[in-house]
Amino acid sequence: MTQVHSVILKIDGVTKLHGQFRALNSISLTINRGEIFGLLGPNGAGKSTLLSILAGSSKPCSGIATFDGTQIQPSNQTLRSRIGLVPQDFAFYEDLTAKENLLFFGQLFGLRGTFLTNKVNEILQIIGLDDGKAHQYSKHFSGGMKRRLNLGIALVHSPDVLMLDEPTVGVDPQSRNRIFEAIKTINALGTTVIYTTHYMEEAESLCNRIAILDHGEIIACDTLKNLLALTQTTVKFSIIEDDQSKEEILIRSIPALKPNILPGSYSLTTHTNPTPDIINLLVNEKIQIINLQMDSPNLEKVFLSLTGRHLRD
């Protein structure tokens, strides 16, 4: 992942109404150049709406969104060349081959001749649709291949910012990994990536920073580490209770340790991962351990702690 240099996208107090429904409620955030920024939230949280505003496909009812200091507006044609949008649906022509689709959209972005051909070949390689697949009608593609082609079309004009709206819905793990690899490759080449998903694992594995949306509002926005720090790690373990003095040593060494109902069972909840310290103590004091269970923090827990609901509810 490339190093973060400066703000490329800024959203300030953006509100979007769909009739009476408030899809976005005074959203403010910044996205830095070169980062992979995750928009995480349950279905209907407002992720796609926010993405459409950032892509210039939709106008906010209030607030402002800027791209490199320029206000994003649907009428601003030049910004469109700097943005690559991967919609949630398959948005390509199924009766064209993968290569023809890429050539077509490349031409619409003004690419011509050898440059276009080379660029298309490069993209086909990145999304893993080179070889014979490039010349197959896309209607014959598997779901995963279609997702990759959907991604490739957004990359053909080398956008500064790539926006992906849940690009892995309904794909097999192999294709998902391919997509991740492609995103990482593109990001490594300097493209800023905005990735919306409701899969916390995807956000955790890809994103530098993550904004968690719920009911049209950003309830948290930070690096993964800082977000995870919003919740605590719980470690539960059991020892052979043959020596009362061992228990005293444990409690003395780790004052936060709480005995459980079962004899010889303990639990510890901290903001940092206490497992190494516990294991070191047990080894040093020669205390025999029966089992150890760690409940690590994740974005699901973060979301749960922030909203009181599960992410997939």
Partner: peptide, 14 residues
């Protein structure tokens, strides 16, 4: 309905 039209609209084409 298929979304290709929106994709066309998202290009810089007039």
């Amino acid at each position: 309905r298929q979304g290709t039209f929106n994709r066309l609209l998202s290009t810089p084409v007039r």
